[in-house]
Amino acid sequence: MTLLITVFAAVAVTVLWYNRKDDTMKLGTLCWLYWGASIMWLVDALFEYAELGADYFAPAPEEMLNDMFLGLSVVAFGLVIWLVILLIKDPKGSVRAALRRQA
């Protein structure tokens, strides 16, 4: 479930990146972040599948709920990392302009 949610997030962000008008939102960073995690979880899933066989596709409901919660938390954590990078790099100069206005 965690892998599935991360892959969906990666695909959605990649589509947004493809349709971007400019690079001011730094969506590429978020793409790499989610795709990196998706690839790593894919390997994890393959090893688990090799160990469990078909049982891998029939998780207990409680386990699935926890994995879903984890997947959503991972997506949220990725978004926070991306936001921090965006605010620090400040490609549009919005943060700088806001801080100068307040000074």
Partner: peptide
């Protein structure tokens, strides 16, 4: 830079899972 983003992204989000 692409490779480092892929690796850091995966490692950070997996570290989060391990903390979880």
């Amino acid at each position: 830079k692409w490779l480092s983003y892929l690796l850091w992204g995966g490692a950070i989000l997996l570290a989060f899972e391990h903390i979880w």
